[in-house]
Amino acid sequence: MKIGIILETKESEKAWNAFRFALTAKKQGHEVKMFLMGEAVECEGLTHEKYNVDVQLKAFSDAGGEIMACGTCMKSRQLNETEACPLSTMVDCVNLVVWADKMVTF
């Protein structure tokens, strides 16, 4: 199954669960793509004593999961794209929704 995930928060527990879900789906053989928008573009490097978002993000990326980050949201925060989170557009987000069999939002 093709699973699309839109993440809009950097709240540690919610973002951690989103990436855990994505990684679990990927490990079960699903195609999984994530689109980060709003404050979620700040998830790379995000750590918390209980919920280490960065570890889950990297594990998902290392497992072959695709992450896209809203370029407008990144630019408004003066963030640059990274290998794990390349700049993407709303067209990419729309294409993700069209591509996916199921969409999940966090």
Rank of each mutant, 00 (worst) to 15 (best):
K2A: 15
I3M: 12
L7C: 11
K10N: 15
E13S: 14
K14P: 05
K14I: 12
K14G: 01
A15G: 11
N17E: 15
N17S: 12
F19S: 02
R20K: 14
A22V: 05
T24R: 07
K26D: 04
K27G: 10
G29Y: 08
G29D: 11
V32H: 01
M34Y: 04
F35A: 07
L36M: 14
M37N: 09
M37D: 04
M37F: 02
E39R: 02
A40P: 02
V41K: 00
V41H: 01
E44A: 08
E44K: 09
G45D: 06
T47M: 10
E49Q: 13
E49Y: 10
E49H: 12
V53Y: 07
Q56M: 15
L57A: 12
K58Q: 15
A59L: 11
F60C: 04
F60V: 11
F60I: 05
G64E: 06
G65W: 00
G65M: 07
E66R: 12
M68A: 08
G71F: 02
G71S: 03
C73D: 08
C73V: 03
K75S: 12
R77Q: 06
R77W: 06
Q78H: 03
N80T: 09
A84R: 12
C85M: 12
P86E: 10
M90Q: 11
V94N: 03
L96A: 03
A100G: 04
D101P: 08
M103A: 10
V104N: 06
T105Y: 13
T105W: 11
F106P: 08
